[in-house]
Amino acid sequence: MLVLSRKAGESVLVGDDVTITVLEVRGDVIRIGIDAPRSVSVQRAELIEQLSSSNRDAASPSDTTVASLAEQLRKRS
């Protein structure tokens, strides 16, 4: 991992098409701006992890859910 120090108003270039600019530093919060082509996906890491976790949970029903579903199917017969 490359670690850089930047001040408000300074930028970092990633490749030829992406510019990351420090907009504001206020305490332990840093606001950044990312200028990238539409073809480059820019996402917050915590949202991707949350979505991935939700998808895993939805794809793996709990034993109680499966048992409840099986019971409902038995009642229909």
Rank of each mutant, 00 (worst) to 15 (best):
L2K: 15
L2H: 15
V3L: 14
L4Y: 15
S5T: 15
K7R: 15
K7V: 08
A8I: 08
G9H: 05
E10Y: 07
E10M: 04
E10Q: 09
S11I: 11
S11V: 00
V12N: 03
V12R: 08
V12Q: 06
V12M: 10
V12K: 01
L13R: 10
L13E: 08
G15I: 05
G15T: 00
D16R: 01
D16P: 03
V18E: 02
V18N: 01
T19P: 01
T19C: 01
I20V: 12
I20P: 00
V22Q: 11
V22F: 02
L23A: 13
E24A: 14
E24K: 13
V25Y: 04
R26S: 07
D28F: 07
D28R: 05
V29R: 11
V29A: 13
V29L: 13
I30D: 11
I30L: 08
R31T: 05
R31M: 02
G33E: 03
G33W: 00
G33F: 02
D35E: 07
D35R: 15
D35A: 06
A36H: 02
A36P: 00
A36L: 04
R38H: 06
S39V: 11
S39P: 00
V40G: 05
S41G: 14
S41Q: 12
S41I: 10
R44K: 09
R44N: 07
E46N: 14
L47H: 11
L47F: 12
L47G: 08
I48N: 04
I48L: 11
I48F: 13
I48V: 15
E49V: 13
Q50N: 09
L51M: 15
L51N: 12
L51R: 08
S52F: 08
S52T: 09
S52Y: 03
S52A: 14
S53L: 08
S54F: 09
S54M: 13
N55P: 08
N55T: 14
R56I: 04
R56S: 11
R56N: 09
D57F: 05
D57I: 07
D57G: 04
D57H: 12
A59D: 09
A59H: 12
A59S: 14
S60R: 13
S62W: 07
S62L: 05
S62A: 06
D63T: 04
D63K: 06
D63E: 14
T64H: 06
T65K: 12
T65P: 01
V66H: 01
S68L: 02
S68C: 03
L69M: 09
L69V: 10
A70Q: 02
A70W: 03
A70R: 09
E71R: 07
Q72P: 07
Q72E: 09
L73C: 03
R74V: 05
R74H: 07
K75Y: 00
K75P: 01
R76A: 08
R76V: 10
S77Q: 11
S77Y: 03
